[in-house]
Design a protein around this nucleic acid. Structure first.
Lengths: 193, 193
DNA sequence: AAAAATTAAATGATCATTTAATTTTTTAGC
DNA sequence: GCTAAAAAATTAAATGATCATTTAATTTTT
């Protein structure tokens, strides 16, 4: 409970506030003051903790990626067969902790800005490679080589598309329904209609 | 060749320049001066023609949507059966005139900003509904009711996902390969592997 | 000559970041 | 437990940069 604590608490609070504020105003338009207001703080204070707006943004992205990683681990724990592990990977992407209105908005903002921001681009690349390699590992055991790559890309692009749709739709999203639908799509791709 | 002409030529030139400049710098960071430089003109001149940055942006979006519509018509002309018309819809989305690095970037920028910009949001909504209704019309004749909605959403989200991937990848895109891959995915969804 | 097109420069607004204080919390000696 | 010095946290205000847009001329086209 020493000095470390307050710093950590503020970091969390400010990142949460940034997520809300970015989702509300958009990456392009959100100001330090918007974020500060959301946190009940001031722009100067955010700079005191994060050094710059840019470093705060990177911290936000890292938190979202950690959330995805955690969801993955959680869902994989319960999976045994390659098929179950494939589905666990899908479920993780539509987990309640991740597949929310605010997070989908944030994710879309990061996609759009990564090409112009090396820090974001790096994080995106690493994440995408991790997801790709997971899907490939499982699909390799379920499908012949030639179909594997197609299904893997189809699934990954499908996931991204659903995230976009969620980000564009106002109102809350239904994570459970998204998981069911994703499984249906995967089954069609694997076994056909 | 009256006064109408010059105005139209400048409009086209400036919209083209805007596409290049937005793709290069990003919607969030692109300035009137960036766009003007790309067109060999000045910021003041753009305002003379378009009134404001905002109206220029809307004009860019409208051009991209017109391009998609035109590709659709072109591909549909050669299609007779529901299956062919479905595939034509896919082909249109990956047509050489549309599926380019710059256009995919622009599209992603518009997705990201639509939630905070009613003009863009309206255009996106209208376009998405049009695409949805096309796919549903064809799929209705190819699949039982219960599978139809799943396949339609899977295809549409897949397309969006491919566009994102193209926007994030530096370097040129391969429209022909994208069309082949999209057809493979559609076939898997329709008939299974 | 009149109209249209173009631009350099001015304007005014917005912001991230820095500075210079002030307030709050922690630490250490008694 | 108490207190004062030190450290950390907080903020209002200043700074300086960036930009969209407007203005007021000038140049080009009709």
């Amino acid at each position: 409970m020493s000095k470390k604590r307050i710093r950590d608490i503020r970091h969390e609070e400010l990142i949460d506030a940034a997520i809300q504020a970015i989702a509300e105003h958009g990456y392009a338009q959100v100001t330090m003051t918007d974020i500060a207001k959301q946190a009940g703080s001031t722009a100067a204070s955010i700079n005191y903790y994060f050094g710059s707006k840019d470093q705060l943004i990177q911290a936000v992205m890292q938190l979202v990626l950690r959330t995805l990683k955690a969801a993955n681990l959680r869902h994989l724990k319960m999976a045994e067969t390659p098929y179950d592990r494939l589905m666990a990977g899908l479920d993780a992407n539509f987990d309640e902790t991740l597949f929310t209105s605010a997070t989908c908005s944030i994710w879309l903002q990061f996609w759009a800005n990564a090409p112009y921001h090396e820090g974001l681009a790096r994080l995106q690349r690493v994440n995408r490679l991790r997801v790709t390699s997971h899907f490939r590992a499982e699909l390799r055991q379920l499908l012949p080589e030639n179909r594997m790559a197609t299904v893997q890309q189809a699934l990954q692009n499908y996931i991204d598309g659903v995230w976009i749709e969620a980000a564009m739709n106002p109102g809350p999203v239904d994570a459970k329904a998204a998981r069911l639908e994703a499984r249906r799509v995967a089954d069609l791709l694997l076994k056909g209609g």
